[in-house]
Simulated scan of single mutants.
Amino acid sequence: MEDNKTFTLYWKTGEREIVKGRDAAEAMTLAGYSGGAVAALDFYAAGEDTAYAWEKDSREWKRTAPFE
């Protein structure tokens, strides 16, 4: 059995959520999201990512950590 990986979901609402699965699609399914939820997802990152902060005025995620 393959180990589950951790993913950080960044929602268009400014929420950040950690999910686990073999891949991002499975992680979202296991968290209870259907295919329609993808429309509300801005992007996702591998691991427990905190490299972005929500800008309330622009309603966008802004990178706060340098690229590695």
Rank of each mutant, 00 (worst) to 15 (best):
A46S: 08
T64F: 05
T8F: 04
A45W: 10
A24T: 01
A53G: 15
E68V: 13
Y44K: 13
D42Q: 05
D23C: 07
W54S: 02
D42R: 14
V19T: 01
G36I: 01
Y33V: 07
T13L: 04
A53Y: 04
T8N: 00
Y33D: 06
E55S: 14
M28I: 04
A39H: 12
T50S: 12
E55M: 12
T13P: 14
T6I: 13
A40G: 11
A40P: 10
A31F: 01
A40V: 07
K56S: 06
T6W: 03
D42E: 09
G35S: 00
V38I: 14
K56D: 02
F67N: 15
D23V: 06
R16A: 12
D57A: 07
F7V: 05
T6D: 10
T50F: 06
A40E: 14
A27P: 15
A46L: 00
W61N: 04
P66W: 08
A24L: 09
K62T: 10
L41G: 09
G21W: 15
D49E: 14
R63F: 09
A39Q: 06
R16S: 13
A46P: 11
Y10V: 12
D49L: 03
T13Q: 01
A65R: 11
E48F: 00
L41H: 02
Y33R: 12
E48D: 11
D57M: 13
E15C: 12
E60P: 01
A53M: 03
L41E: 06
G32L: 10
G14S: 03
G47F: 04
G21D: 07
E15P: 02
Y44C: 08
A53P: 04
W54Y: 11
R22F: 15
A37R: 08
M1D: 14
L9N: 06
K56Q: 01
K12Q: 10
E48H: 01
M28H: 08
A65D: 09
W11Y: 11
A45H: 06
D49W: 02
K12Y: 04
S34C: 12
R63D: 10
M1H: 00
